[in-house]
Design a protein around this nucleic acid. Structure first.
Lengths: 198, 198
DNA sequence: CTGCTACGCTACGGTTGCGTAGCGTTCTGC
DNA sequence: GCAGAACGCTACGCAACCGTAGCGTAGCAG
């Protein structure tokens, strides 16, 4: 990693193989026990890569967790139907599916908790959050340029009103995220009539 | 705790004193490091109560944490102005203040994370959540009986639309919870005209 | 083919934490 | 006062985890 000659890309396949295995096992452990559930010994046991090798690639447990953390979320594809309501419906349905599946959704609380006290994790969380929410913000931005949303409305605010209730249901109230609730949330968005006058 | 004769209420002041000190220190440690930041040794060190004494009152670390957890939130006073908008404004401003202060707001992510995998914590979280949100639900219920809210609207849904964005800002997007955002959230509630036609 | 590099293995040392045991002391309720 | 409960103290045993060292082996690049 420091040699400066051969580390141009990834000349040694052994390195790539080890790193992949380690990161996979780390991610798997995160799913099971949150960030705190990751231990280097257990990662080593799981993926068959020796602990010494792990420490050859990451200087500490924190660095490993942070690395796995940073590669977590995948942005949803950007919809572009020309209608904000339709774009948001697509995005929300994707998000709801993600929230119900065992993936980053089950790790995020742990990340948020850690971010409360660890600046490095806070940075990773910010980046992850940006990635996940970018399509939402972009959809609102475009709608604003089309005049579908008032110029005074901050896209970030609109997104908060939309996804806030979804996150709330998933983690805070732990009520089901059913279709009817999704409808209720969507019907409060700009470009639609308010939900008490349908 | 098992004697059955003297433990009627709290006959021995020593017990009350120890328990109070231990629970206080436990709560303090929670504020600093979340549920995972609580260790029996550290609690003992902090409050000056011997570790053996702690184990005389709680069978395990988990039981202690759970106990401290259960005594966490305090319900806001129930407003009753006769207007849903005003009631909600009062409640929301109280909640925003709480979210900005170092109290249960900084521990909740940790509780949520633990609840994801620990049924006992999940129960404590459900109870805590009920306590914190009860005034909101009650306010909406009353408004519904006054006809201010459509009978078809579930109070829990209305509350989710209201507080979801606040929680989202506090923990997920980590943007400031300023007055203008609070206004944006409040203006989307029933009994008010939608925010794009002021 | 050869030399370098990554790797696995074993074995540490140190820390932290859980939960228990035994004993002497102090406080409390009666 | 007095018996008994609660407490503090010290000292354990055990497990998990972090991070390091040394050595021999296997695989890669040239």
């Amino acid at each position: 990693m420091v040699e400066g000659v051969e580390s141009a890309v990834g000349l040694d396949r052994r390195v790539a193989r080890s790193k992949d295995a380690v990161l996979s096992a780390t991610y798997e452990l995160m799913l099971e026990g949150g960030l705190g559930g990751v231990s280097v010994d257990e990662v080593s046991r799981r993926c068959g890569v020796a602990k010494t090798t792990i420490y050859r690639h990451w200087p500490s447990r924190a660095a490993l967790v942070l690395d796995a953390c940073s590669q977590m979320g995948v942005a949803a594809p950007q919809p572009d139907t020309g209608s904000l309501a339709d774009d948001l419906r697509i995005l929300v349905e994707g998000l709801v599916a993600e929230l119900g599946a065992p993936g980053w959704a089950s790790v995020l609380p742990s990340v948020i908790d850690a971010a409360e006290r660890d600046p490095d994790i806070a940075r990773a969380h910010a980046s992850l959050h940006r990635t996940l929410m970018a399509p939402f913000v972009e959809a609102v931005e475009r709608a604003r340029q089309r005049g579908e949303v008032a110029a005074a409305d901050e896209p970030a605010d609109v997104v908060a009103l939309l996804v806030g209730p979804l996150f709330y249901r998933r983690w805070f109230s732990r009520e089901p995220l059913d279709a009817s609730f999704v409808e209720t949330v969507l019907s409060g968005m700009p470009g639609r009539r308010p939900r008490d006058t349908p």
